[in-house]
Amino acid sequence: MIVLVPGVPALLPSYASLDDPVADLRAACAAAVATLGPQVRVIAASAPAEKVARHLLATAGLEVVDDASDILVVGNGSAMRTEKAPGHFDERAEGFDDALRAALVAPDPAALASLDPALADALWADVAGIGAAAGLLTSELTAEVGYDAAPYGVQYWVIRWL
């Protein structure tokens, strides 16, 4: 089993608010992560992404083990979907996210392995973990999408591959 979650720092307890700004996302992450385990390998490409993965797994009572067969991948689409997005608006963002979504949902390991790193960087997309996991997302898997939205101008997905 493989699960994708976005590395959203607002999911961390150290950044908790009284009113949870990512309540729906948090619920979707928890539901997907709960189907993993008990041992899970984490594929994350940044310190915040790693922290989010470890927090979600710890909350679910799961153990991080480097060679486990269940995998939690951390990544997300662009951060330039709107004027108020962290990276401001970029007209290429929606197309980039649409292509990425299609490759994730298919899944299409070749497309995921060949994501344009320069464009991803330009759009502040966190796709390094997704690229690293591409070889595992073989085409016989079926994607179950638990969350697909860009509430703060950043494209998030929670996807479970069975």
Binding site: V8, P9, Y15, A16, S17, L18, D19, P21, P86, G153
Partner: peptide
């Protein structure tokens, strides 16, 4: 002693 009411800036 009190979390912010709703903080998302920089944490998306």
């Amino acid at each position: 002693r009190r979390p912010p009411q709703r903080a998302i800036r920089g944490l998306q």
